[in-house]
Structures are given as structure tokens and as C-alpha cells.
Simulated assay, not measured.
Amino acid sequence: MSEEKIIEVLKNAGKPLKTKEIAELAGMDSKEVSKIISKLKKEGKITSPKRCYYSV
């Protein structure tokens, strides 16, 4: 599932990443990644330590 893929990419990175970087590492479209990130943020599964950066 793509949500799990994004969480996995963030865990493996070990640092906050931008949406574009997450999309490249996950091999997904950045628009799709943006939608999933919004959903994961609402669910509290990921955080945004600074603007446009995301981490687990």
C-alpha cells in the first residue's frame, strides 16, 4: 500500500524529507504523495518539523 511505502521511505531516510524527495524515493507521483501525506498528518502518523518537510 502506498501509505506504508511513504512511512517506510521516511523511516529509512532518518531525516525530514520534502514531498518531492519522498515521491522520488517511493517511485510515485508527487501529487499522489501530497494527498497521502495530508491524510497521514491528520491521522497523526507523520509530523512536519518545519514547513514542507515531513518525518515519522
Results as ranks from 00 to 15, higher is better:
Leu17Thr: 00
Lys45Tyr: 03
Leu25Phe: 10
Glu24His: 01
Lys18Pro: 07
Lys39Val: 09
Ile37Val: 11
Cys52Leu: 10
Pro49Trp: 09
Pro49Gln: 05
Tyr53Trp: 05
Tyr53Cys: 05
Leu40Asp: 01
Gly27Ile: 11
Lys15Ala: 09
Asn12Leu: 10
Ser38Cys: 12
Glu24Thr: 07
Arg51Leu: 11
Thr47Gly: 08
Ile22Leu: 12
Lys5Val: 03
Leu10Phe: 05
Met1Ile: 07
Met1Phe: 03
Ser55Gly: 00
Ser55His: 08
Lys45Met: 11
Asp29Leu: 00
Ile7Trp: 04
Ser30Met: 04
Gly27Ser: 03
Glu24Ala: 13
Asn12Trp: 03
Glu32Val: 14
Ile7Gly: 00
Lys31Trp: 02
Gly14Tyr: 12
Ser2His: 06
Ala23His: 08
Thr19Gln: 14
Asn12His: 07
Glu4Met: 09
Lys11Gln: 14
Ile37Glu: 06
Cys52Ile: 03
Lys20Arg: 13
Lys11His: 14
Lys35Leu: 13
Glu24Val: 08
Gly14Arg: 10
Glu43Ile: 00
Tyr53Gln: 05
Ser48Gly: 07
Glu3Ser: 08
Leu40Tyr: 13
Ala26Asp: 11
Ala23Leu: 05
Met1Leu: 10
Lys18Met: 15
Ile36Thr: 11
Lys5Thr: 04
Lys11Leu: 12
Ile46Tyr: 08
Val9Ala: 01
Ala23Cys: 10
Lys45Asn: 02
Pro49His: 02
Tyr54Asp: 02
Lys15Cys: 05
Cys52Thr: 07
Lys15Ile: 02
Lys50Tyr: 14
Ser48Pro: 04
Asp29Gly: 02
Ala26Asn: 02
Pro16Arg: 09
Ile6Asn: 04
Gly44Pro: 07
Ser48Gln: 14
Glu21Leu: 06
Lys5His: 12
Ala23Glu: 12
Val33Ile: 14
Arg51Met: 11
Lys11Ser: 14
Glu21Gly: 04
Val56Ile: 14
Cys52Asn: 13
Thr19Ser: 13
Gly27Tyr: 13
Thr19Asn: 10
Ser30Leu: 03
Glu4His: 13
Leu17His: 12
Thr19Tyr: 05
Lys50Pro: 02
Ala23Asp: 10
Lys5Gln: 08
Tyr53Leu: 08
Gly14Pro: 11
Ala26Arg: 00
Cys52Glu: 00
Ser55Tyr: 08
Ser48Val: 05
Ala23Gly: 06
Ser55Trp: 08
Lys45Thr: 08
Glu21Ile: 06
Ser55Lys: 01
Asp29Ser: 11
Met1Lys: 09
Ser2Asp: 12
Glu3Gln: 07
Gly44Ala: 09
Ile6Arg: 01
Asp29Arg: 07
Lys41Phe: 15
Ile37Ser: 03
Ala13Trp: 10
Lys5Cys: 09
Glu4Ser: 07
Val9Lys: 01
Lys11Arg: 15
Ala13Phe: 08
Gly14Trp: 11
Glu4Lys: 14
Met28Ile: 03
Lys11Asn: 13
Ser2Ile: 09
Gly27His: 04
Ser38Ala: 13
Glu4Trp: 04
Leu40Ser: 00
Ile22Cys: 02
Ala23Asn: 00
Leu10Asn: 07
Lys50Ile: 00
Glu21Pro: 03
